[in-house]
Design a protein around this nucleic acid. Structure first.
Lengths: 223, 223
DNA sequence: CGGGACTGCGACACGACTGCGACACGGCGG
DNA sequence: CCGCCGTGTCGCAGTCGTGTCGCAGTCCCG
């Protein structure tokens, strides 16, 4: 589902959560301290950070602020203390969500999925339902299974998913994806959409991701 | 700060939260049931919905699903039950966040601000009464229920709603919507207006949105 | 009060639009 | 040199949208 960095100093909690999140289909890396976590983030990108507040060295709040300042990786905070001060300060520090320990794995997973669903457009990875589009690595996975797209199909998907919900006319797509000048109407776009659907849609007749708006063009996403 | 719709059946809780959120700078409207809430959403747009789960009539989950299906208004759920089932199901239903009662006003406010910060500002949306027209996604909802319009009906509605109150002659509409230079009068516009009314008007005989100005043409909106 | 003009409304047939499979061309690598 | 893969073109079929027609109801004006 997603690559998650877990920053947690307690070895027992760390292994428990790592195991639980792995079972939910995530790839989990771990760090023991805030410094380690920030270094790990710099070394390799991840989709989301689960961050304990009580850390040796730099506090969780400070780590959160630095992560948010550095880039668009969403953060889910994790703490044993459930008092209001933590909630407010944590969210003010830029956390995207907040879970109180002891955390039920199902709860944490639901929160993580909700955050990922929301923060999709902010960074280089776009997640919509079971579809995951990495705009930097130029890879697409469907339910964690890699999907092989041709260059044109990929450009089409990238263009459409750049503005989910917005309708693109065939003319616009021809200009942006094919860089053609308009020469009469062409069934080229329809054809490429059909091929793309065959690869990423479970039911191409009732498409979930690439939808046709009769008379206007195509649209990526819900409704 | 923001306009918030609070859906909560308990009068005491409702007034308490309304007061508290008002003190935090929000404009708060209220509804007692899910039906009332959906109607209120249709009548006037708001920035965010605070939704109690335990409601008479339609359940909070169902209300949440309908709100998300209809459009982009973020939802913060509110419930007395804190068990895992609620959290997971709630977030799966499309809620953006989740607060357990009794809610500290500072916590609720922090959550609301966090959700608002995340939700992108949506433009290109025209709201008139219960009618919502998204000019980018090219979707129309009536009281949060999606309305299926044909391309011509949609172009007609977009043209009329671009200038509410202004009267468009049949000739003008033929040029802008159909791109015909039609000589001679045609009943084409009348026909399309009738079909449009059948879909978006509750009482087509006494139309609320598309009104006829006898001898001149048609007009969108009141008076 | 009556006639004429204007509009609402249902029905129907033609046509446009899209999905979809088949095929040809061309580039690239084995 | 051959074969594969990506890409663009063509044609067919089904669906849905659209324009025309006719009738009935309503409003205006003489």
């Amino acid at each position: 589902m997603a690559t998650i960095l877990l920053i947690e100093d307690d070895p027992g909690v760390r292994r428990g959560l790592q195991l639980a999140l792995s079972r939910h289909g995530h790839e989990v890396r771990t760090a023991e301290t805030g410094e380690d976590g920030l270094r790990a983030l710099g070394a390799a990108a991840c989709d989301l950070v689960v961050l304990d507040l009580m850390l040796p060295g730099i506090s969780g709040f400070e780590v959160c602020r630095r992560i948010r300042a550095a880039g668009g990786v969403p953060v889910v905070m994790l703490t044993a203390r459930g008092d209001d001060f933590d909630v407010v300060t944590g969210l003010e520090a830029g956390a995207d969500d907040y879970v109180v320990k002891p955390a039920q794995p199902t709860v944490l997973d639901a929160r993580i999925r909700a955050v990922l669903r929301r923060s999709a457009p902010s960074d280089g990875v776009r997640v919509h339902g079971g579809l995951r589009i990495d705009t930097e690595a130029l890879t697409v996975t469907l339910h964690d299974a890699p999907v092989a797209l041709t260059p044109t199909e990929l450009r089409l998907l990238l263009t459409l998913s750049r503005a989910p919900g917005r309708v693109f006319s065939r003319r616009q797509l021809l200009e942006e994806v094919w860089e053609h000048d308009y020469l009469g109407d062409s069934r080229l776009v329809d054809n490429c959409v059909q091929r793309l659907r065959a690869k990423i849609e479970e039911h191409p007749a009732a498409p979930e991701y690439v939808q046709t708006v009769r008379g206007f063009g195509y649209r990526f996403g819900p409704l």
